[in-house]
């Protein structure tokens, strides 16, 4: 229907779209290049430039030696913190979200619509409305300034998204399939395990990618509920910027930024299709 030959009009379109793409890549290119340039070089020229000698050492420094606040262990401990929060919280919220989504989509129980409606309201409730209660709850159960506290928060709050994703996916499973299985004698869990779960990989991948990306990138709770050595990497990056405000270390900082962004970027590159599906699924609530 639409031609694919190179008419002047189409050349113009290609030109426009690729120059936009180049513009979109500038921040990534800049931070990648700077991560292998020395601080002196950056200060002399600018953030925009080709490395004269490749300072791979920046990465080692950023990873293990750099000083944030009083400790000089690089961002390694903070990366570990982020992983220790993101991975368990992603798993917990996905598992329970899948079961809850399965329950509200394929079973009828008293109050199901009502409770599902409230859970989806959680998609819209700003974090600022929950900050104060979480502070008090975490303090009272002794989880303030712990990774477990962050896992708890993200596991519970994540349920709004995971339940919604799974419910919207499972709703397309024919009810007759559940009826057939019930007549065959399968119960709630067996139907989930044998029939629903084998159909679930696409939505579970979407959910896991979405949750992991969100929790890894989250900043507000990290900076509010943890300090010092307990902070996730997003909060540590801000602390790092503040710490070096007087003597910027742009090379090492760029390396740190690259390291911090790497897990979600990798997930995006490997599972881009599922990432986009999560984005659009989240939009059509």
């Amino acid at each position: 229907m639409r031609d694919t030959t190179f008419t002047p009009g189409r050349i113009l379109i290609y030109l426009a779209v690729w120059s936009l793409a180049a513009a979109w890549l500038v921040p990534l290119a800049v931070v990648m290049l700077n991560s292998v340039r020395t601080a002196e070089e950056i200060v002399q020229t600018s953030m925009i430039g080709w490395p004269e000698h490749w300072a791979w050492d920046n990465y080692r420094t950023a990873w293990a030696d750099f000083c944030v606040a009083q400790t000089c262990a690089g961002i390694r401990p903070y990366m570990l913190n982020s992983a220790l929060v993101s991975i368990p919280a992603t798993i917990i919220s996905t598992v329970f979200g899948a079961v809850a989504g399965y329950a509200v989509s394929l079973w009828r129980f008293p109050g199901d619509r009502w409770i599902y409606g409230v859970v989806t309201l959680g998609l819209f409730l700003p974090q600022q409305m929950r900050l104060l209660p979480w502070t008090i709850v975490l303090r009272d159960v002794g989880l303030i300034n712990t990774l477990t506290g962050l896992v708890l928060i993200h596991s519970i709050q994540g349920l709004s998204f995971t339940t919604l994703f799974c419910r919207n996916y499972y709703i397309a499973i024919p009810r007759e399939l559940i009826g057939a299985a019930r007549i065959d004698g399968a119960g709630f869990f067996r139907i989930f395990r044998r029939i629903v779960l084998p159909l679930s990989p696409p939505i579970l991948i979407v959910t896991v990618i979405w949750q992991f990306t969100h929790i890894w990138n989250e900043f507000l709770y990290g900076v509010t509920f943890t300090t010092g050595q307990q902070q996730p990497v997003t909060a540590a990056l801000i602390a790092l910027s503040a710490a070096v405000a007087d003597v910027p270390q742009h090379g090492v900082q760029s390396a740190a930024v690259m390291i911090a962004a790497l897990p979600t970027l990798l997930v995006y590159l490997l599972g881009g299709r599922y990432f986009v599906r999560g984005l659009t699924a989240g939009a059509v609530k």
Binding site: P174, A180, R182, I183, A186, I195
Partner: peptide, 21 residues
């Protein structure tokens, strides 16, 4: 009595075959 204990069998319009089995 739940469906499984009613001593019945059912054939559905969409056949409702378990897709993963």
């Amino acid at each position: 009595v739940p469906p499984k204990d009613r001593d019945i069998a059912m054939v559905f319009q969409s056949y409702a075959l378990y897709p993963s089995m």
